[in-house]
């Protein structure tokens, strides 16, 4: 049981990075970006390939991030420069990534059409860390190392996001998701801010995939299916918990907490005997119900806000 909670938490932290990425596109930019589904796999495949080639695992995560940024940037260009609706732009990138991911994994095996890549018995972040001096000093096994690394990534990414969205550039990205017309009137290149926002979002999603592949010990071309819904579920749970907060940092922490809660619930549900193949529909139902509730709540709020405002 403790094992289940521990691995649930660790996985929650890894998926939280994806949820933070989805937050950037869905909440900050107000774009439902399906690139996510191919991008988590892209992060996993790139990392798997690099680990096969004995590249340093930390460097592999960084390269996965950059690969994700490129994928997100492409969706951004399709949407802004070629005027393709964002949903379709995301789908187009996602579909392309399916083939690309297989190509990436095929490079490692030198066999065409490799749809998954095992990372068992290959050194990764977690084994590296637990066998490092620091890991030995802390006497950490692989499981604890994975938990610690998850915490480090989440804290670091929250700190970076908090800083970034406070900068001039970050503020203009936030404003873009809020009111594009106003942004252009204020001299903001909204094409550019969307492209940067989508690149950042998908970079994070790829990092999530990079850690996930190392944690579960393989990369699989289908591992991203439904991932955007999982991200949304985490965001919605987080927002429900920290409903009253106006602070951006708390909001981000809420998403991580939401993701961990989601994973723990999933672990427990599976532990209790529900077939894991039913998970996706369960997640979808959770998101549907939550979205209905929030749209209902905002309607109520809008109604009460209309009444009684003072002059001017």
């Amino acid at each position: 049981m403790v094992d289940i909670l521990l691995s649930g938490t660790t996985q929650g932290l890894i998926w939280a990075i994806l949820a933070l990425g989805v937050y950037v596109s869905y909440r900050v930019l107000d774009i439902a970006d399906l690139t996510c589904e191919g991008c988590i796999t892209l992060g996993a495949s790139v990392t798997a390939l690099l680990l096969w080639k004995e590249v340093n695992p930390w460097l592999a995560v960084l390269i996965a991030f950059l690969a994700g940024c490129i994928a997100g940037g492409i969706t951004g260009v399709l949407h802004t420069k070629m005027k393709i609706p964002p949903i379709l732009a995301g789908i187009l990138t996602m579909i392309s990534l399916y083939s690309i991911n297989i190509h990436i994994m095929s490079i490692a095996t030198e066999k065409q059409g490799t749809a998954n890549l095992s990372l068992l018995r290959i050194d990764n972040l977690y084994t590296d860390f637990s066998s490092s001096k620091l890991g030995e000093l802390l006497n950490m096994g692989k499981t604890n190392a994975a938990l610690l690394i998850g915490v480090i990534f989440c804290v670091g990414i929250i700190a970076i996001l908090y800083w970034f969205f406070g900068t001039e550039l970050g503020s203009s990205i936030r404003a873009t998701g809020n009111n594009e017309k106003m942004c252009r009137a204020q001299g903001i290149d909204t094409d550019l801010t969307k492209i940067i926002g989508l690149a950042l979002s998908n970079g994070l999603i790829a990092v999530s995939g990079a850690l996930l592949s190392q944690y579960q010990g393989y990369s699989d071309v289908n591992m991203g299916v439904g991932s955007i819904v999982i991200g949304l579920a985490s965001i919605i749970i987080g927002e429900a918990i920290f409903a009253r907060t106006k602070r951006f940092a708390i909001m981000l922490i809420g998403i991580v907490v939401g993701s961990v809660i989601y994973r723990l619930v999933v672990s427990l549900v599976i532990f209790s005997g529900m077939p894991s193949t039913d998970l996706k529909v369960m997640t979808a139902v959770v998101v549907i119900v939550a979205l209905c509730l929030t749209s209902f709540a905002s309607k109520v709020r809008a109604k009460s806000a209309k009444g009684g405002k003072g002059n001017v």
Partner: peptide, 23 residues
């Protein structure tokens, strides 16, 4: 969705390059 002062800060940078300086 942004604060009054944040909106003003966006407007104060009209016509300028938006950098990684604090907004």
């Amino acid at each position: 969705n942004m604060q009054i002062d944040e909106n003003l800060a966006l407007a104060a940078r009209r016509g300028k390059l938006r950098t990684l300086k604090w907004g």
